[in-house]
Computed example of a mutant assay.
Amino acid sequence: METRNNTAGLEFLLLELTEDPALQPLLFSLFLSMYLVTILGNLLIILAVNSDPHLHTPMYFFLSNLSFTDICLSTSTIPKMLVNIQSQRQSISYTGCLSQVFFVLAFLVLENCFLTAMAYDRYVAICHPLMYTIIMNPSLCVTLVLISLGISSLDALLHTLMVLRLSFCTDLHIPHFFCELAQVIEPACSDTLINNILVYFFSIILAGSSLSGIIFSYTQIVSSLWRMPSAGRKYKAFSTCGSHLLVVFLFYGTGFGVYFSSAVTESSRKTAVASMMYTVVPQMLNPFIYSLRNRDVREALRKILSRITFFR
C-alpha cells in the first residue's frame, strides 16, 4: 500500500449504515428523530434546573452539566452521519475525522467524570447529611466540573496529537459509523504500538477509577441505608439514587456491551452498531429516566410546559 505523509486532501471512508438503498430514508428518519429527542429532552432538563429555585442544588447542578455533555456528544457524531446518509457519500476529511476523535473522547470522559461526581454527591447526602451543605458547597461543585473538563480535554488532546504523528495508507476504510479512536489508528501504516498502549492505559485508569468511585459510594450508601431504622426513610433515601443508578447502568452497560461484542464477533457492522448504541441511546434516555423517576424534575418541567402553553 502507498503511504501518504501529506494529510492535505486525505479522506476516510466510513461504514455504511446499510447496503440496501431502500432503507436509507428510514434510517435517516430514525436517527434524526433520536437526535431531536436527545437535544429537546436534555435542553428541557437544563431549562428546568436553571428556572426552578428548588433545583439549585449540587445534584441538579451536575445533572444539568450531564445533559449539556449528552447534547455535545450526540452532536459530535449524528449530524455527520445524517449528512452522509442524505448525500450517499461515506467520506470524512482528515481534519473532520480528527475533530470527531477529539470531541467524542472528550465528552465520553466528561460524562464518565460527571457520573462519578453525582455518585459522590449522593454518598455525602445520605451518609453525611448534617455535613452535606458544608462539604458540597458551590466552590467544590465548580471545582469538580473544572477538574472533569481538564481531565477530559487533556485525555482527548493527547490521543488526538498521537494520531497526528501517524502516516496513513491510501486504503482508509474505517469499519465504523464515525471516527472512533481505535478504528482510526488501525489503518495507519506507521507503528501504532505507543498509540494502542496509551488507549488501553488511559481507558483502564479513567474508567477504572470512576467505576471504583461509584462502587465505593454506593457500597457506603447501602451500608448507611441498612442501618436506618425507618423503612420510610430508607425508601426515600434510595429513591433519590434510583435515577442515577439507572443512568450509570445504561452508560457502563452499553460500554461493556461494545467491548464484549467486539471480542466475540468478527462482524464489523455488529460491533459498529453496538458502539453507536453506546454514544446515542444513553444520551437520549437520560432525560426520560430523570424526569420520570424524579418528582422535583417533573414538577419543574410541568411549570415550563404550562408557561409555553400559556404564551401560545
Rank of each mutant, 00 (worst) to 15 (best):
S29F: 13
M34R: 04
V37K: 03
T38F: 13
L40G: 12
L40D: 05
N42F: 03
L44E: 15
L47S: 13
A48T: 10
V49T: 13
N50P: 02
S51F: 02
D52E: 11
D52H: 09
H54M: 03
L55H: 02
L55C: 12
H56P: 01
T57M: 06
T57W: 03
T57E: 09
P58C: 07
P58H: 08
P58D: 00
P58F: 00
M59T: 12
M59P: 03
Y60T: 14
S64E: 07
L66I: 10
S67W: 06
F68H: 12
F68N: 14
T69A: 14
D70G: 11
C72E: 07
L73Q: 01
S74Q: 11
S76C: 05
I78N: 01
V83A: 14
V83N: 10
I85L: 15
I85F: 12
S87P: 01
Q88P: 04
Q88K: 13
R89Q: 14
Q90T: 13
Q90I: 05
S93A: 00
Y94D: 00
C97E: 11
C97H: 05
L98H: 00
Q100K: 14
Q100S: 09
Q100H: 11
V101S: 07
F102R: 04
V104T: 06
V104Y: 00
L105Q: 10
A106D: 06
L108T: 05
E111T: 08
E111M: 14
L115S: 07
A117S: 14
A117I: 06
A119T: 08
A119W: 08
Y120L: 15
R122T: 01
R122K: 07
V124T: 05
A125Q: 15
I126Q: 03
H128S: 14
H128N: 09
P129I: 02
L130Y: 06
L130T: 07
M131P: 01
Y132C: 08
T133I: 00
I134K: 15
I134S: 14
S139M: 09
L140T: 03
C141W: 01
T143N: 13
T143A: 15
L144C: 08
I147R: 11
S148Y: 08
L149D: 03
G150V: 00
S152Q: 09
S152D: 00
S153T: 10
L154P: 00
M162I: 02
M162R: 07
V163R: 04
V163A: 03
V163N: 00
R165L: 08
S167A: 13
